[in-house]
Amino acid sequence: MRIVVDLNRCQGYAQCVYLAHEVFRLSGQEALTYEPNPDDERLLQVERAAAACPVQAIVIDRLDGAKRGEAS
């Protein structure tokens, strides 16, 4: 799986950090960092984090052609 976060859209609400802290982290007060290629066993956590993002800034590419959490 590959994750892309639109950092221009991200507002630092950190819902993703609470739901998938192994993948998403806040550096400093509002700078989000993340693991762009987390293990597939984290898929459910990452899907929940993407769904919880108030601004829908997280896109998940499952590398099998299916995309989830499309930012529009």
Results as ranks from 00 to 15, higher is better:
M1Q: 03
M1A: 05
M1R: 05
R2N: 08
R2K: 11
I3W: 04
V4R: 05
V5C: 09
D6L: 00
L7W: 02
L7S: 06
N8C: 09
N8L: 10
R9S: 01
C10P: 13
C10V: 06
Q11P: 02
Q11W: 05
G12S: 10
G12D: 07
G12F: 06
Y13I: 11
A14Q: 05
A14F: 04
Q15C: 08
Q15P: 00
C16L: 05
V17G: 14
V17E: 04
V17A: 12
Y18H: 06
L19S: 01
L19H: 01
A20R: 03
A20S: 09
H21E: 14
H21N: 15
H21M: 14
E22F: 01
E22G: 11
E22N: 10
E22K: 10
V23K: 04
V23Y: 07
V23I: 15
V23D: 12
F24K: 06
F24M: 11
L26M: 09
L26H: 00
L26Y: 08
L26K: 10
L26T: 03
S27W: 06
S27R: 13
S27I: 12
G28K: 00
G28D: 01
Q29T: 07
E30D: 15
L32K: 08
L32D: 02
L32E: 07
T33W: 02
T33E: 07
T33P: 05
T33L: 08
Y34P: 05
Y34N: 05
Y34H: 06
E35A: 12
E35V: 12
E35R: 13
P36R: 07
P36A: 08
N37I: 10
N37D: 12
N37P: 00
N37F: 13
N37E: 12
D39Q: 04
D39M: 04
D39N: 07
D40W: 00
D40E: 15
D40G: 11
E41P: 02
L43A: 13
L43R: 03
L43D: 08
L44S: 12
Q45S: 10
Q45L: 13
V46S: 10
E47A: 14
R48W: 07
R48P: 03
R48H: 13
A49N: 02
A49R: 10
A49S: 07
A49I: 09
A50D: 06
A51W: 12
A51C: 01
A52I: 02
A52D: 11
C53N: 08
P54A: 12
V55A: 13
V55W: 02
V55I: 04
Q56D: 15
Q56G: 03
Q56S: 15
Q56H: 11
Q56P: 00
A57S: 11
A57N: 00
I58D: 00
I58Q: 04
I58E: 02
V59K: 12
I60C: 05
D61T: 02
D61A: 13
D61R: 07
D61P: 08
R62V: 09
R62Y: 11
R62P: 02
L63V: 04
L63E: 15
L63P: 09
D64M: 09
D64G: 10
D64A: 09
D64L: 13
G65S: 11
G65T: 00
G65F: 09
A66W: 09
A66F: 08
K67N: 13
R68S: 11
R68L: 14
G69N: 01
G69F: 08
G69E: 00
G69V: 02
E70R: 14
E70V: 09
A71D: 08
A71C: 03
A71N: 14
